[in-house]
């Protein structure tokens, strides 16, 4: 349904993206190689240790961190999938008309019920 209005588009339209990608990669490779060749290189044990405000660095940064970030990521996955469902609906909103709108109301009702649940669970509370 999403493709209904786009009969004149060809898969070959995407080909120039490769040109753009090629240019971008060339620029990135150029700047990395040039800065690697031009800059000075002097190593010492203290200098190569990771920065911790001038005091001696303690341990490794591969440590566990607050689970809140992980929960946010999981919630994003859930909600973003639902948002993606809405794109074809939004593009074809006029054709689907009132029926489609009512169906989407139902869908959003379920979405908001889940949203209410996570708020009540306190997952989005970062203060404590």
């Amino acid at each position: 349904m999403l493709l209904a209005t786009t009969a004149t588009y060809q898969p070959a339209d995407y080909l120039p993206i490769l040109i753009q990608l090629g240019l971008a990669l060339a620029f990135v490779a150029f700047s990395m190689v040039v800065s690697h060749l031009v800059g000075p290189k002097r190593h010492s044990k203290v200098k190569d240790s990771s920065f911790e405000c001038g005091i001696e660095s303690v341990g490794n940064a591969r440590t566990p961190i607050s689970v809140k970030y992980f929960l946010t990521a999981i919630l994003f996955v859930l909600f973003d999938v639902e948002v993606i469902f809405m794109y074809p609906w939004a593009v074809n909103f006029r054709e689907l008309g009132t029926t489609g709108f009512v169906e989407m109301l139902l869908f959003m009702g379920l979405l908001l019920a889940g949203f209410y649940y996570i708020i009540k669970k306190g997952i989005l509370k970062w203060q404590n």
């Binding site: 700047s31 040039v34 800065s35 690697h36 031009v38 800059g39 000075p40 290189k41 002097r42 044990k45 190569d48 240790s49 990771s50 920065f51 490794n60 940064a61």
Partner: peptide
């Protein structure tokens, strides 16, 4: 300036 600065790799990276 950015091009001519030293390229730094932290030891644990």
């Amino acid at each position: 300036k950015l091009f001519t600065k030293e390229e730094f790799f932290p030891s644990g990276a």
